[in-house]
Amino acid sequence: MKEYIKLIRPFHWVKNILIFVPLFFGEQITNIHKLGILVLGFISFSFVASSVYIINDIQDAEKDRKHPKKRFRPIASGKISKINATKFLVILLIIAALIMTYASIDTGNWFAIFALPVSYLVINIAYSNGLKNIPLLDVAIISLGFVIRLYYGSALSNIAISDALFLTVVSASFFLGFGKRRNELKKGTSTRKVLKAYNIHFLDKIMYVFIGLTLVFYSLWTITKGENLVYTVPFAMLIVADYCLIIESDSSDGDPAEVLKHSKTLLSLLMLFAVVLFICLYI
């Protein structure tokens, strides 16, 4: 069982917390019924996201066996066969579909609740099978994944996404994507074919352009939203600064989940930021 848990990479589910953003910023996080639907949505989307990891591991098993770190993955190491991994993949998708069916009945929003996770699955399969080798499009698809999560949360909660919040998430997603590519490039272009099309100077410039846009759009959202949220902007600035400090180091590969996993300071800042947001919105 331990190997199956390792196969689905549960720590990477932290990215799916974005699903709760519409409910939280819509000031309805205390609505137990809607929160329950969002929790189910979080589980279903996480299973879909894990399915992408399993598909990739099945496809890349032979290549992963030659990698110094990836060779320890369950399929590459032979601890889980490709057949058993495929069966497990089907089970995850069936459970996700059942949860989405229940959520659809409850909310009446059939199309979006099914279309968004399916789109995420299809887009990421296409990404793994060639689109990841196209410069700029590779990062755009990463960004799209975060946007899909945001609108999935919107569909589950029936809460609309404001323009400023949408632009904040898009900008932040591009920043995270280009930051990841930057650190991968520092470690050598052999890890990804697309890295040969990038250079450090471009990635440095574009990454920090999106940092600025993220803070501008977030500031604009706080001003339009009111509720004293403008006082959370300095916290956002500090979080961005700490994240940049981490990925500028030689030890980080720039993956958002891994950065958060290994930085207690960043995690503490994010928790404090969430508490301040909660006070502003709900107290």
Results as ranks from 00 to 15, higher is better:
Ile54Val: 10
Ala115Phe: 12
Ala241Phe: 00
Ile211Phe: 12
Phe45Cys: 08
Asn199His: 05
Phe47Met: 15
Ala97Cys: 07
Leu137Phe: 12
Asn129Ala: 12
Asn199Pro: 02
Gly226Ala: 05
Pro135Gly: 04
Asn133Arg: 05
Tyr102Lys: 02
Asp242Gln: 15
Val39Gly: 03
Ala76Glu: 01
Ala197Met: 09
Phe217Leu: 05
Leu281Ser: 04
Ala197Val: 11
Phe166Ala: 13
Leu136Ala: 09
Ile123Phe: 07
Tyr53Leu: 00
Asp204Arg: 06
Thr224Ala: 10
Arg9Val: 08
Asn199Trp: 11
Ser51Gln: 08
Ser219His: 03
Leu229Trp: 00
Ile141Tyr: 07
Gly36Arg: 01
Lys15Val: 04
His262Leu: 12
Ala257Trp: 11
Ile43Ala: 13
Phe72Pro: 01
Ile75Trp: 06
Leu7Ala: 11
Phe47Tyr: 08
Leu121Ile: 04
Ser50Met: 09
Gln59Asn: 15
Asn199Tyr: 01
Gly177Thr: 01
Thr30His: 13
Ile239Gly: 09
Asn129Cys: 09
Leu136Ile: 15
Glu3Cys: 13
Leu93Asn: 10
Ala96Phe: 09
Leu245Gly: 08
Tyr120Phe: 15
Ala76Lys: 13
Gly36Asp: 02
Pro74His: 06
Ile58Asp: 00
Val209Glu: 02
Asp250Gly: 00
Lys66Trp: 09
Leu137Met: 14
Leu281Asp: 09
Ser143Val: 13
Lys70Tyr: 00
Ile239Arg: 02
Ala97Asp: 08
Phe235Pro: 00
Tyr152Leu: 14
Ile80Val: 14
Ile239Tyr: 11
Gly36Met: 00
Leu93Val: 14
Lys79Gln: 10
Ser44Val: 05
Glu3Tyr: 08
Tyr198Arg: 08
Leu270Glu: 02
Ile125Gly: 06
Lys225Ala: 11
Ile159Met: 10
Lys69Asn: 13
Ile246Gln: 09
Leu272Met: 05
Ala61Ser: 14
Val118Asn: 11
Pro22Glu: 02
Asp242Gly: 03
Asp64Tyr: 13
Phe235Asp: 03
Phe88Trp: 14
Ile75Met: 02
Glu227Gln: 14
Asn84Arg: 14
Ile17Tyr: 14
Lys187Pro: 03
Ile58Glu: 01
Lys63Gln: 15
Ala61Gln: 15
Leu23Met: 10
Asp163Phe: 09
Asn16Gly: 03
Val169Ser: 03
Arg73Asp: 08
Pro22Leu: 01
Tyr151Pro: 09
Ala172Met: 12
Arg181Asn: 04
Ser157Gly: 07
Ser104Asn: 03
Ile37His: 05
Phe111Ala: 14
Leu35Glu: 07
Ile123Met: 05
Ala115Pro: 11
Asp255Met: 02
Leu277Cys: 15
Asn124Glu: 11
Ile91Gly: 00
Phe217Trp: 12
Gly26Asp: 08
Ile83Arg: 15
Val170Arg: 03
